[in-house]
């Protein structure tokens, strides 16, 4: 199967900081690929290079067989880009904003009118199409932001944190829509802080940290990197910093991080067997008020691979 989007050896340096280092992955036709990484990992820099907004120092990007550097217009015409920040004219209506983007992509007048109606229907905003954007809720703006990227029927849709700051109803609508697009054969590159969204939408996931893709695979493949490890969450009352250090030193604990004001999250081998040892380790420092052993999931894999929670 040919890749709709592929990149190899992408690097970008800002002064002394190597923001992206030798990043490479591919997305097949109709495949949803998730890019996970903590803040500052290099996700947005990588995406900026993938959509042609930033010139890489090294490496190349291919979109549907078009080299982005050699034939940028043909390559960009195949991409639908949904930026993290909502980029819409607030004093124009939803329909007028879509018309602007459709014209930008050179859609003929009649086709554009038809596509605008289709896209408005798809994002569920037909009834608010003629309202100005500055009267929309955050979720509605996000949906139009996505709609603008769909007008020209792109081969690959790149979504950079598309659900940031939206209400649950709009998030559900966005995720349902994205799943529908993938089911219809569109390729997808999805970045999000929300692990559950990536688990739900994406077939394969790349984990990026400190500018490098440190692991890549299906959810099952990534979780299997944990081996027989479990994720354990302890709710404690006491000195959590000292308790975290104590727990980290316990044999069989591979990761221990604070989670909120009263919890410590751990990756441990044979979690259920190790529980008495864990509780004993914090005795005198903190009182364990609740314990949860969670089956290995993508978040545990992420924690294991990066040593950070995703939202750090």
């Amino acid at each position: 199967m040919t890749a709709t989007l592929s990149c190899t050896g992408l690097s970008k340096r800002y002064g002394d900081i190597l923001a992206v280092q030798d990043v490479g992955f591919f997305i097949e036709k109709g495949e949803a690929y998730g890019l996970l990484g903590p803040n500052g990992a290099g996700k947005t820099t990588a995406i900026s290079m993938l959509v042609g907004l930033l010139q890489p120092d090294t490496g190349s990007v291919q979109v549907c067989g078009h080299d982005l550097a050699a034939d940028p217009l043909a390559a960009k015409a195949k991409i639908g880009y949904v930026p993290q920040e909502i980029a819409l004219y607030p004093d124009l209506t939803g329909r007028e904003n879509l018309r602007f983007f459709g014209r930008l992509y050179g859609l003929p007048r009649r086709e554009l009118a038809k596509r605008i109606d289709e896209v408005l229907d798809f994002v569920g905003l037909s009834d608010r199409a003629d309202g100005k954007i500055d009267t929309y809720s955050g979720g509605m703006k996000r949906r139009i932001n996505i709609g603008a990227a769909l007008l020209h029927r792109p081969e690959v849709l790149i979504l950079d944190e598309p659900t940031v700051g939206v209400d649950p109803q709009s998030r559900k609508a966005i995720l349902d829509g994205v799943e529908q697009l993938v089911a219809d054969g569109m390729s997808l590159l999805y970045t999000s802080h929300y692990m559950e969204e990536v688990e739900r939408v994406c077939k394969r996931v790349g984990i990026i940290d400190h500018g490098k893709v440190i692991a890549e695979g299906t959810r099952k493949e990534l979780v299997s990197t944990l081996g027989s490890a479990d994720r354990v969450e302890l709710v404690l009352d006491g000195d959590l910093d000292v308790a975290t250090d104590k727990l980290r030193a316990v044999e069989g604990v591979t990761e221990a991080v604070r989670a909120g004001t009263s919890s410590i999250r751990l990756i441990v081998n044979e979690g259920s067997h190790l529980l008495p040892t864990l509780i004993a380790a914090v005795r005198g420092i903190a009182v364990v008020t609740a314990v949860e052993v969670i089956e290995p999931d993508l978040e545990a894999a992420f924690l294991h691979l990066t040593g950070n929670k995703l939202r750090d």
Binding site: L53, L73, A77, A87, Y89, Y105
Partner: peptide
């Protein structure tokens, strides 16, 4: 400020 110029340049636009 709105990012419209940046987003325009992400399209097939010189």
């Amino acid at each position: 400020r709105l990012g419209m110029i940046r987003r325009s340049l992400a399209g097939p636009v010189r």
